[in-house]
Design a protein around this nucleic acid. Structure first.
Length: 423
DNA sequence: ATGCTCCTGCGAA
DNA sequence: CTAACGTTCGCAGGAGCAT
């Protein structure tokens, strides 16, 4: 019955610290793409009152004063570190659900209940030793409670040394702990729902747990009902097998500098469609439609414009050239002159496994084989020579729109050419 | 009435 | 130099459409 939620502490910051010990003990933030907002903060930065998703230009003044080190995000590095953490954790349970880049659930059914604290410690020490990343462990009978236990472990509320097992608490102790935690800290309760809960005088986790279930179901949704069940120890969210492939692929970026022309937008859209098609082939899937969107900045005091369009594909495909053409045809229809565009993107939808693809009347086997060969060559060249070595002409070469990354660390684990030279 | 597909809103990391 | 505010994914529920 027990489930563990293992979550890496300040994951991106911790990744950077593994390779640069000078970052230890000093305030560090990692910024999002385009150096836009803070997406990871060290404990020292959190202590300064800097929030998640705080824009960098607002942090910058404080940063100078306190010597905050700001790093551009390096997703290649974090992805590789994540894979190492996850494979280490896989050894601790026959069933693992990788929930995000920095956390996973482990099924601990059948483990002796009184040994779980020690097991949690073992997990922490092993990950720290093998990968160098600090983690916290929360253990409870449902996924929602395991998340909450992890929250407690991180805050040091209850539990010791980064591990918290609710199985050791009786209801009285749980009530005491739950009464101190805001309802908004519960997994599945975001800004909107916690605001609405507050108007009903539901402030804490304990308030939510003991609220009238019929009222929760009628005033909110089936999702919050399940969350409430889980807070009461009734499992209502299944542990999923990782390995089920995703249902959509999204590639979008904000621009470093605004784009006004159709040509500029076309380059970006072609580039994103190319990237998305690569991911699609990696998954071994084909897409049956592609959606394209563009938008201006929602923050500027100018007229806002955003639009999107879904372009259906006659035959589901993983061919870059077809996907790029479709995306560009959609872009042409939604483009309006006279705007400063700040972002564009592409989404592949209706994904299905390529091998299960139904043959249609329009199928041309010879053409299909040629396309597959071309895509294979494209993928292997990009694999050998580095991402973006070979793209289609429509994506251009200048990339004046591409994002800012002023302070990126080297891709230590995945790119030889970025390793520092040692003499 | 019933069953779809599409779109939007919300949440999470 | 100024201005500058992320990305990707799943799910639920309602709208709109066809039958």
């Amino acid at each position: 019955m027990p489930i563990a939620l293992v979550d890496c502490n300040n994951f991106y910051v911790s990744c950077e610290r593994v390779f640069n010990p000078k970052l230890e003990g000093v305030p560090v933030v990692v910024l999002s793409n385009n150096d836009g907002v803070a997406v990871a903060r060290s404990a020292e930065v959190k202590a300064l009152g800097i929030n998640m998703a705080e824009p960098w230009f607002k942090i910058e003044k404080i940063a100078k004063k306190y010597g905050i080190i700001a790093l551009s995000s390096n997703y290649t590095l974090y992805g590789d570190m994540s894979a190492r953490v996850m494979s280490t954790l896989a050894n601790f349970s026959p069933k693992q659900e990788i929930y995000s880049i920095d956390e996973c659930f482990l099924d601990l059914s059948g483990f002796p209940p009184d040994s779980l604290m020690a097991y949690g410690q073992k997990i922490r020490q092993t990950v720290r030793q093998n990968v160098g990343i600090p983690v916290c462990v929360g253990i409870a009978d449902t996924k929602t409670l395991a998340k909450l236990a992890n929250h407690c472990a991180k805050k040091g509320y209850a539990g010791r040394d980064g591990v918290c097992d609710f199985g050791r608490f009786n209801q009285e102790v749980k009530t005491k702990v739950f009464s101190k935690i805001p309802a908004g800290d519960v997994w599945g309760v975001g800004r909107k729902i916690s605001e609405k809960l507050l108007t009903m005088n539901i402030k804490t986790v304990e308030d939510l747990r003991t609220a009238n279930p019929e009222m929760i179901r009628s005033q909110f949704s089936i999702v919050l009902s399940r969350t409430q069940n889980e807070l009461n120890g009734i499992p209502s969210i299944e542990l999923e097998d990782s390995g089920t492939s995703r249902q959509q692929i999204m590639v979008s970026r904000s621009f470093g500098t605004p784009v006004t022309s159709l040509e500029g937008l076309s380059e970006s859209v072609a580039y994103y469609a190319t990237t998305a098609a690569g991911k699609l082939r990696q998954d071994g899937s084909v897409a049956s439609s592609i959606s394209v969107f563009i938008r201006t900045s929602p923050f500027k005091n100018e007229e806002y414009y955003e639009n999107s369009l879904v372009v259906p594909l006659m035959n589901p495909t993983d061919d870059t050239t077809i996907l790029v053409k479709a995306a560009l045809s959609g872009l042409k229809k939604i483009f309006r002159n006279g705007f400063d565009y700040k972002k564009s993107g592409v989404m592949l939808m209706g994904l299905q496994p390529k091998d299960a693809l139904q043959k249609t009347l329009f199928d041309d086997t010879d053409k299909q084989t040629k396309s597959d060969n071309l895509m294979h060559v494209m993928d292997s060249i990009n694999q050998k020579m580095g991402k973006g070595s070979l793209t289609i002409a429509a994506s251009g070469l200048g990339h004046g729109w591409s994002m800012r990354r002023e302070n990126k660390s080297p891709s230590y684990t995945t790119d030889w050419s970025e390793l520092p030279v040692v003499r």
